[in-house]
C-alpha cells in the first residue's frame, strides 16, 4: 500500500504539465468539427452578406456578382423603401408592448402552476403545448382563425365562436351596453390574451423551473414570520426568480425580433423575391444592428437590478 501511495503522486506531477497541454489540444479536437462548419456555414456567409449590403448584387450563372455602390443600399432601405421604416417602427413598438406582458403573464402562470392542486399535471401539459406548435406554419393558420378583425372568410367563420361568446358573456354580466370603448377594450384584451398565451410556453417553463429551485429554508422562514402571499411573492419569489427574468426578457425580445412572421422579416423576404439582394442585405444588417443595440441596452439596465445568489 505504501509503495503505491508514494509513486502515484510523483507520476501525476510529472504528467501534469503535458497532461494539461494535451487536454487543451483535445479541446480543439472536440470543437474542431463545429469550428470548420462555423467558418463555412456561418462566418463566411455572414461576411459575404455584409459585403452584399454595399453592393448591387445580380444573380448570374456562376453565382452572385456585385458592383460596389457604397451605402446606397442603406439609403434606399431607409429613405426610398415605402414600407421598411414603417415596419421597423411597428416591430419595435410591438416588441416593447408584448414583452413586458409576456413576462408578467408567464411569471403569474408559473406561480399558479407551482401551487399544489388537482389536475396540475394536465394544466402544465396544456400550457406547454404551444411550445411544439407556435414556431411552425400551423400557428399562422390558427391565428388566422382566431383573428376577429374579419378580413377573410375563415375569420368570419370563427367569429361565430369567439366574439359571440364574448359578447354573450358581456351581455350576461350587463357590461355590454355601458360604453363602446369599454366593450372594445375588453374585446381587444381577449384577442391579445390568445397571442399572449400562445407565445409564453417556454417562458412559463423556465420560470417554473426557477420557482422549483427556491430553497425550502426561504419558504419556511417566510411562513414562520407570517408573510402574506403578496409579501412572499415580492420578498422571496421575485428576488430568486430575477436572474431568470433577465434570461426570459432577452429570450422574448430576440424571439420576437427574429420571428419569421414579423413585418420586417416579411419585407426582407419580399425584397429577396424581387431579386434586390443588396437592399435586402442592407435591411437585414441595419435591423440586426438595431436589435443588438436594444438587447444591449436592456441587458445593461436590467442586469443592475438582478439579485444573484452568491454561491
Amino acid at each position: 500500500m505504501d509503495n503505491v501511495k508514494e509513486t502515484k503522486p510523483k507520476k501525476k506531477q510529472k504528467k501534469k504539465m503535458s497532461y494539461e497541454k494535451q487536454k487543451g489540444l483535445y479541446g480543439y479536437g472536440f470543437i474542431g468539427l463545429w469550428f470548420i462548419g462555423a467558418v463555412i456555414f456561418f462566418i463566411i456567409p455572414m461576411v459575404e452578406s455584409f459585403l452584399y449590403s454595399f453592393q448591387n448584387v445580380n444573380p448570374q450563372a456562376g453565382g452572385m456578382k456585385g458592383d460596389w455602390v457604397g451605402i446606397n443600399n442603406y439609403a434606399e432601405a431607409f429613405s426610398k423603401d415605402p414600407h421598411y421604416r414603417e415596419y421597423l417602427i411597428q416591430v419595435l413598438k410591438d416588441t416593447a408592448m408584448t414583452t413586458p406582458l409576456i413576462l408578467i403573464f408567464s411569471l403569474f402562470i408559473a406561480v399558479i402552476l407551482n401551487q399544489k392542486f388537482k389536475g396540475r399535471a394536465f394544466a402544465r401539459a396544456v400550457f406547454f403545448l404551444p411550445v411544439i406548435i407556435a414556431s411552425g406554419p400551423v400557428y399562422a393558420i390558427i391565428t388566422g382563425d382566431m383573428d376577429t378583425s374579419g378580413t377573410n372568410g375563415a375569420e368570419q367563420f370563427s367569429t361565430v365562436f369567439e366574439t359571440d361568446m364574448v359578447t354573450e358573456l358581456l351581455e350576461f354580466t350587463g357590461i355590454y351596453g355601458l360604453s363602446d370603448t369599454l366593450t372594445q377594450t375588453i374585446k381587444t384584451t381577449i384577442d391579445s390574451i390568445f397571442g399572449l398565451v400562445w407565445k409564453s410556453g417556454i417562458q412559463i417553463l423556465i420560470f417554473l423551473a426557477a420557482l422549483q429551485n427556491i430553497p425550502h429554508s426561504a419558504k419556511e422562514a417566510a411562513v414562520m414570520e407570517g408573510a402574506t402571499s403578496w409579501e412572499y411573492f415580492w420578498k422571496i419569489t421575485f428576488p430568486y426568480v430575477s436572474p431568470m427574468i433577465i434570461a426570459n426578457l432577452i429570450f422574448t425580445v430576440i424571439d420576437s425580433f427574429t420571428d419569421s412572421g414579423n413585418a420586417v422579416m416579411g419585407r426582407i423576404i419580399d425584397m429577396q423575391n424581387e431579386w434586390k439582394y443588396g437592399v435586402a442585405a442592407a435591411m437585414v444588417w441595419s435591423y440586426f444592428a438595431i436589435v443588438m443595440i436594444v438587447v444591449g441596452i436592456i441587458f445593461a439596465v436590467v442586469n443592475k437590478h438582478v439579485y444573484y445568489e452568491v454561491e
Partner: peptide, 21 residues
C-alpha cells in the same frame, strides 16, 4: 463568442450567401 453570435443572428442574415454556396 461565435456560439453566442450563432444564437443571436437570425438565419435570414446568412441564408442568401449559404444559398450561393
Amino acid at each position: 463568442g461565435i456560439v453566442i453570435l450563432m444564437i443571436l443572428v437570425p438565419p435570414q442574415v446568412i441564408l442568401l450567401p449559404q444559398y450561393d454556396q
